[in-house]
Simulated scan of single mutants.
Amino acid sequence: MRFCNEGTASVGSVEDEPHLIVLRGNAASGKSTLATALQRALGPRTAKVEQDHLRRVVLREHDVPDGENIGLIAHTVRYCAGIGHHTIVEGILVAKHYRDMLCDLLDEHHGPTHVFYLDVPLEETVRRHRSRPLVAKVSADELRRWYVESDLLGVPGEVVLDGTATPEVTLAAVQSVVGHVLALEDQNPGRYL
Rank of each mutant, 00 (worst) to 15 (best):
M1T: 12
M1V: 10
N5Y: 13
N5F: 13
N5I: 11
T8L: 03
T8W: 02
T8Y: 01
V11N: 12
V11H: 03
G12W: 02
S13C: 11
E15S: 13
D16P: 01
P18M: 05
L20N: 12
I21F: 04
V22I: 15
L23K: 01
G25M: 04
G30D: 06
G30N: 04
T33V: 14
L34D: 09
L34C: 07
L34Y: 01
L38V: 06
L38R: 03
Q39V: 09
P44W: 01
A47R: 05
K48G: 07
E50R: 09
Q51D: 09
Q51E: 14
Q51I: 07
D52P: 06
D52H: 09
D52Y: 06
H53I: 00
R55W: 06
R56G: 13
V58G: 00
E61P: 07
P65I: 04
P65R: 03
P65T: 02
P65K: 02
D66G: 06
E68T: 07
I70N: 02
G71A: 00
A74Q: 11
T76M: 00
V77F: 08
C80V: 04
A81Q: 10
I83G: 02
H86I: 01
H86E: 10
T87C: 07
T87I: 04
G91S: 04
G91C: 04
G91W: 03
I92S: 02
L93K: 09
V94S: 15
V94W: 00
K96Q: 12
K96E: 15
H97V: 07
H97P: 00
R99D: 05
M101N: 08
M101P: 03
M101Y: 07
D104T: 07
L105E: 11
L105Y: 12
L106T: 13
L106Y: 07
L106R: 08
H109G: 10
H109P: 11
H110N: 14
G111R: 06
T113Q: 15
H114N: 10
V115G: 12
V115S: 14
F116H: 06
Y117D: 05
D119S: 14
V120Y: 01
V120W: 00
E124G: 01
T125M: 04
R127I: 05
R128Q: 09
H129V: 03
R130W: 03
R132V: 00
L134V: 14
V135W: 01
V135R: 12
V135K: 11
A136T: 08
A136G: 08
V138H: 04
A140Q: 14
E142Y: 12
L143I: 13
R145L: 11
R145C: 07
V148Y: 14
E149F: 06
E149Q: 13
E149H: 12
S150R: 15
D151Q: 08
D151A: 08
V155F: 05
V159W: 02
V159T: 15
V159Q: 14
V160R: 09
V160P: 00
A165F: 02
E168I: 02
T170M: 05
L171W: 06
L171F: 06
V174T: 04
Q175V: 05
Q175P: 04
Q175L: 11
S176A: 13
S176N: 12
G179I: 00
L184I: 00
E185W: 05
D186R: 06
N188W: 05
N188K: 02
R191H: 09
R191C: 03
Y192W: 10
L193E: 12
L193M: 05
